[in-house]
Write a protein that binds this DNA or RNA. Sequence first.
DNA 1: GATGCTGTTCTGGG
DNA 2: GCCCAGAACAGCAT
Length: 258
Amino acid sequence: MPEILEVEMFRRSASLVIGRTVKSVTATDRIVVPEPAAVRMLVGRRITDVTRRGKMMTIHAGPARDPLAIDVHFGMSGRIIVDGSSPIDELAYGASDDTKWIRFALRFASGEMLLSDPRRFARVQPSSAWAGLGPDAFEVGKREFIDRVGARRAPLKAVLLDQSVLAGLGNMLVDEILLRAGLDPRRLVNTVSPTELGNVHAVMRRVLPELARKGGSHAGRLSAELRFAGAACPVDAHPMDRCVVGGRTTIFCPRHQH
DNA sequence: GATGCTGTTCTGGG
DNA sequence: GCCCAGAACAGCAT
């Protein structure tokens, strides 16, 4: 479920523990935390920062002469709970407050940070320094965006979903951006002009802060209730089509997306 | 009971 | 090497 907007909310929550010293680490789930010994090295260290690139959140801990960084990826159903509250109460595709979904926990002298993940697609592991991730969707400039996306040949949507090209966009956000940009998600990206790609970049830079304000990836014009074939396009009311692009269910308007 | 899913990774094949 | 489809991961909602 979490795309870049949700992960940014998680990062803000997690940053509440900056300055605290880790008292204990609970990491019993070998799927979510495949290297528990490495993650337990956090014990006794002070949290110095919590950063994010795309959908990856990184927890940084001291000391300065021997720092440790741990990557947290939330998968489909992961979310964070800090000192008893989460920025997102209700996740699509399963997440209750049931404590049996807690896969990872940091406890401090005061308070705690929990990772809840029913489906266990989340991962907590020593940081790989964001190797393999493209530039963050919030930060990437127009020139770099056009160069990176335009260098590929796959369908436009598949390229925008590729985290090594651009980090952060998921299925919902890509459909929303292409709906607003008026581009067909199936179009091979090498047939999309630099001007059109520049427009995609402009739409993305506008949509991300807007949806962040409205509460997340689900808050766009292409809301969950419209994600079926035949729904009225929010732009021109023409019945929308459904197909699969890049392995993901895709909703688009055949009239205004070309 | 069957299907699908706001994500990623791997495999086999063109 | 690039790209794709499909499967796998696992639980829940419809």
